[in-house]
Design a protein around this nucleic acid. Structure first.
Length: 424
RNA sequence: GUGGGCGUAGCUCAAUGGUAGAGCAUCGGACUGUGGCUCCGAGGGCUGGGGGUUCGAAACCCCUCGCCCACCCCA
């Protein structure tokens, strides 16, 4: 066993029954994103490391300890993308996209990589469906995006009562800086009650102390200064407007003042959608996102506001109660073959049917008819066409409906129309 | 990075120191060319790997590899 090849830890194969469920999710996502006027963007999985350092943030957990970073053959440092927004913004700037259209809506879908300890709902290669909107500053697009996410999750079969929509505002960079100092002052005064983790965060990222699960720190955080209180009128109105629009769209939201996203580029609105269903384990955040109004300019582009989200595909899959098998459809036709002469006749016949779009399996092995029909059952096939010496001699073939348990004899030229008839 | 749990047939799991088993799945037969049910049968295991204790280890001890769960982090 030990010498068998193994897959890299936290990176899994996804096999056929499960893949059908993936395809269902991807298809629904594409449908709804398409309906909301998004277009697909595809970017490389590898980027130069500084891109992530400058966007996600030098001091964030993701960049500090979780990236797959290695030297390229020319010595430059490259990293496997830990998230999708950085690449989208890079592409946006590289193409001067703002000169092509005033508003850009992009979505992407694919694998992301973070070197974390794997657990339920958290893998080292995981998959996100994400979207970005560039060029709209107003709160209505924030609400639109959140409502779209909720619609997608409902479309996938999740129940509204199981979803929690949390929103918050991080304010503009100035407000955030002011708040950061207020927090630092507050927690510094109570430094003796902080755990080691939080104490280190004092300097680098005091906002993250609010997220601590340490009971003493939580108690402390409960009476810490609240970001919303230090926000200016503009930010507060923006958040209120987002919630108002959400209500208009039929989405109930809660303000979570401690919703501090772990990526540095966020400004203003942040949001998170959690699912309260079994099967998810401790990682119950299905999607998260927010505004990053300063990111485009900080990477050398013009001042373009933007907002985005990412949805964790694996987590959505876990939250969906339907088994993977239920997303797989059976075959239409199984061609049972008895003998080499029959096979020589059946092969081109099956070929034609397949090219005509009829999902067909043909038996290539020398096995009995009984075994072939069992195989047809296992493949959840609708019809079986039986071809043996008798049929060849008579020029008539047995077409059996495996669901109705009825069969009839058909001439060669009747086969395809009869199959199409049965498919309706 | 820290802590805990678990590795026995393809899958889910029994066997607590004394001959490695069951269910499901697979294959075959009953039914020599007609499926899902039933009955009968078969194949399949260096019990993750290595070392130790013992007359004897799947079990006890050590090491190692792997998986899982949680902390943390986040999708």
């Amino acid at each position: 066993m030990a010498e068998l090849p193994q897959n890299v830890k936290g990176m899994n194969d996804i096999l056929p029954p499960e893949v059908a469920k993936w395809q269902f999710v991807e298809e629904k996502a594409r449908q709804i994103l398409d309906a909301f006027a998004y277009r697909e963007l595809r970017t490389p999985i590898l980027e130069y490391t500084p891109l992530f350092q400058r966007t996600v943030g030098e001091t964030t957990e993701v960049v500090e300890k979780q990236m797959y970073t290695f030297p390229d053959r020319d010595g430059s440092s490259v990293s496997m993308r830990p998230e999708g927004t950085a690449s989208a913004v890079r592409a946006y700037i590289a193409r001067s996209q703002w000169n092509r259209e005033p508003v850009t809506r992009w979505y992407y879908l694919g694998p992301m990589f973070r070197h974390e300890r794997a657990q339920r709902g958290r893998l080292r290669q995981f998959h996100q469906i994400g979207a970005e909107v560039f060029g709209i500053p107003g709160p209505s697009v924030d609400a639109e995006m959140i409502a779209m996410l909720v619609a997608l999750l409902l479309d996938l079969g999740l129940a509204a009562v199981d979803l929690e929509v949390a929103v918050n505002s991080l304010g503009d960079p100035d407000e955030r800086a002011t708040y950061r100092e207020a927090l630092r002052a507050y927690f510094s005064a109570h430094a003796d009650k902080l755990d080691d983790f939080s104490r280190r965060r004092l300097e680098s990222n005091p906002l993250r102390i609010l997220d601590s699960k340490d009971p003493r720190v939580q108690a402390l955080a409960a009476s810490a200064p609240i970001l919303l209180d230090t926000l200016g009128e503009r930010s507060r109105q923006h958040l209120a407007a987002v919630r108002g629009h959400l209500a208009d769209l039929g989405v109930a939201s809660q303000v979570d003042p401690r919703l501090v996203r772990g990526l540095d580029y966020y400004t203003g609105t942040t949001f998170e959608i959690k699912a309260k269903v079994g099967g998810l384990g401790a990682q119950n955040t299905l999607a998260g996102g927010g505004r990053y109004d300063r990111l485009v300019s900080s990477l050398g582009g013009p001042e373009i506001p933007a907002i985005g989200f990412a949805l964790g595909v694996e987590r959505v899959l876990l939250a969906m109660s339907q088994p993977a098998e239920s997303f797989e459809s059976g075959l239409t036709l199984y061609v049972a073959v008895l003998g080499e002469k029959a096979r020589a006749f059946a092969l081109p016949l099956a070929h034609r049917l397949r090219l005509g779009g009829i999902r067909t399996e043909i038996e290539h092995r020398e096995i009995g008819l009984k075994a072939q029909l069992k195989r047809a059952d296992a493949l959840r096939t609708r019809l079986a066409l039986m071809i043996g010496d008798n049929e060849l001699a008579a020029g008539k073939f047995v077409l059996r409906d495996l669901v109705k348990r009825e069969q009839s004899e058909v001439r060669a030229d009747e086969i395809e129309p009869r199959i199409r008839q049965a498919m309706d």
